[in-house]
Design a binder for these strands. Sequence first.
DNA 1: CGTTGAGTTGAGCTCTTTCAATAGGAGTGG
DNA 2: CCACTCCTATTGAAAGAGCTCAACTCAACG
Lengths: 205, 205
Amino acid sequence: MLSAEVEGDSLVFVASGVVKLTAQSASPQPAKHDACTNHVLSFHFPTDIVSVLRREDGDFRLIALADAQLVTFSADRFLDLAQDDPAVIRSVLARSLNALHRSRNRMMQMSHKSARQRVADFLVSMSKRLTAGEHKACEFALPMSRRDIADCLGLTIETVSRQFAELRDAGLIETEGRSLVRLLDLEKLSREAGRTPLPHFEPTI
Amino acid sequence: MLSAEVEGDSLVFVASGVVKLTAQSASPQPAKHDACTNHVLSFHFPTDIVSVLRREDGDFRLIALADAQLVTFSADRFLDLAQDDPAVIRSVLARSLNALHRSRNRMMQMSHKSARQRVADFLVSMSKRLTAGEHKACEFALPMSRRDIADCLGLTIETVSRQFAELRDAGLIETEGRSLVRLLDLEKLSREAGRTPLPHFEPTI
DNA sequence: CGTTGAGTTGAGCTCTTTCAATAGGAGTGG
DNA sequence: CCACTCCTATTGAAAGAGCTCAACTCAACG
């Protein structure tokens, strides 16, 4: 478990492992017994480039969920160096627009989707990341805890757990132990998630 | 009321007026009596540059809420032309990272905030856009309908309306007619929104 | 074998949505 | 200017979804 501290905006390349991008919202009023208002913005996998930006209130953090190898650039310095190479900077721009696009999609989903839809969508999306290519045997170990999932989906761990149970009862998934998940019916699961087609894997920033 | 149709990814500069960026989620199952699953992703004001990307499922649309003057670029062609000018392309990249940043913040808020917080946040955020500079007399006409607000915040119009009513009862705002709003206590309103500081206005992409 | 932390499950409560009815504004035509 | 209509907005009551709190289970680890 490794946590990378960075000053200013930076770009991080994930070479191996899994990381979560979190934002602790330095909550103004310490709320009731808040303890863990640790929002998880996204999970990232090898080949992803994550942009970790500085915020006014509290900071973004990149936290490893499994042993990970990361390459960190200062965004400014990187851009200075890349400035002479249009292809590079343009690729970064393309990735960044792509990330924006996905973030918007995600936001749209988040605000209008039920717990069931969020969890189903999460599972489908994870299967794409973790079993890239293999169309059958959608079986994988979730690298993150229920808390991380809940924080990412804007739900409580209890609700996530209940949704897992219901999906299990419905015969859409199977679980073994804490992290192993088997998606038995990707088709139906996608429909539960409220997705039309099956989007492709695309590198993120 | 003007609607700009575009093919492929494009960048749109808002010269004047107000527009909303929408995504119709070409809902797989036509749902009950869905009619209007028109998600509003964001509102944009003069000087904003909006990136309108192509999606697999359904398209993004830019819809004018008031008479607006827009300049539309094809993203690809623009980048081809800008490629020789590092300063330009870098500025676009900076805007895009900024937009990503704001989108993430927004997403974070959306998934964890109550109706009250969302509406308060919306009002504070609008006041920044619509009364840029004037610290007093936070009074402005909302250019969008309650439906647009609801769609943007992931709530129903009824809930938005009730939140307006409660904020009015609490003495935080006053309303006149359908669109005029006066923020009586920006401080408290910001606190209701769950914001620590008062973020600055920044151009978007 | 007890302890610890994560995960699951249940009961009650809160907030938001849904459904349905009412009020308000804007536009039209007499 | 008023009457009529249409559409948006508001308000109320009931239902539903997710949250909180609390008990319990499970697996890992000493």
